[in-house]
């Protein structure tokens, strides 16, 4: 498991698309189902998660020599929880309406195992720069997935995108799409499309484009899903 030499671009792009946390690794599904009933909520949740992931990865990577291995998971969780608390308070102070809509799910970023996964599998072993790129890629990938799900659900379920009406008054919103089942439908269909794209060779084409070896989903950084860790 010696560190493979990758370019900065690969560190970033990997999380955005081919190892997209939601669409490929199936991590962070709790917020992806729960708060994607509108684009604004999905985006706010994505940005909050991005902030926590970036902060935690940079910090974990920079102090990795100081943390004894025996207590590393506790230390990571402490770091993540601190960033989540800060994000929670800042959102409440700056965008109270969005904070209200996201409710308890901001606090639940702590147990988003996409974040802990990146710390354990990547940031704790890599230099700060690579950890930051990896966090940025994974965070952007998460935001993309959230906004995709949120966009589909809001357009179909409410007839709007970011609150702007798209259709005339004749449009009857598919209310089920902004209810919990809509989250499952949307995620399921997206996963199906994504898996289909991969199966038809999308990943190999991506490999040629980005020169990333296709090791199928999980590269040298090892498996990231803790058993039973996903909420």
């Amino acid at each position: 498991m010696s560190p493979r030499v990758t370019t900065p671009g690969e560190d970033f792009v990997r999380g955005v698309w081919r190892e997209n946390p939601v669409l490929v690794q199936l991590l962070g599904l709790c917020p992806a189902l729960a708060v994607t009933n509108s684009v604004a909520n999905a985006l706010a949740m994505g940005l909050a998660t991005f902030f926590v992931l970036m902060g935690s990865s940079v910090l974990v990577s920079s102090i990795k020599r100081l943390i004894p291995k025996e207590v590393r998971i506790s230390a990571y969780i402490l770091i993540i929880a601190t960033f989540v608390t800060i994000a929670d308070m800042v959102l409440a102070a700056v965008v109270p309406e969005i904070h209200k809509a996201l409710g308890a799910f901001i606090a639940l970023i702590v147990v988003n195992c996409m974040i802990l996964g990146r710390q354990e599998a990547f940031a704790s072993k890599q230099p700060v720069g690579r950890a930051a790129l990896d966090a940025a890629g994974t965070g952007v990938g998460f935001i993309i997935a959230m906004v995709m799900i949120g966009g589909i659900r809001e357009v179909l379920g409410n007839g709007t995108f970011l609150g702007a009406a798209l259709f005339g008054s004749g449009f009857e919103p598919w209310i089920v799409m902004i209810l919990p089942p809509g989250g499952f439908f949307t995620l399921g269909i997206l996963l199906l499309l994504f898996a289909g794209w991969e199966e038809r060779g999308g990943a190999e084409r991506a490999e040629r484009t980005w020169r990333v070896p296709v090791t199928r989903r999980v590269s040298d950084v090892g498996p990231v899903a803790a058993p039973g860790g996903e909420r």
């Binding site: 100081l66 943390i67 004894p68 025996e70 207590v71 506790s74 230390a75 402490l78 770091i79 929880a81 601190t82 608390t85 800060i86 308070m89 800042v90 409440a92 102070a93």
Partner: peptide
């Protein structure tokens, strides 16, 4: 081990209090 977690906890607490004061 204990010292590491204690120091990390204290720093985290301090940071949270500062942000709380602001928000």
């Amino acid at each position: 081990l204990v010292a590491t977690l204690a120091v990390a906890g204290a720093l985290a607490g301090l940071l949270i209090v500062l942000v709380h004061e602001w928000s």
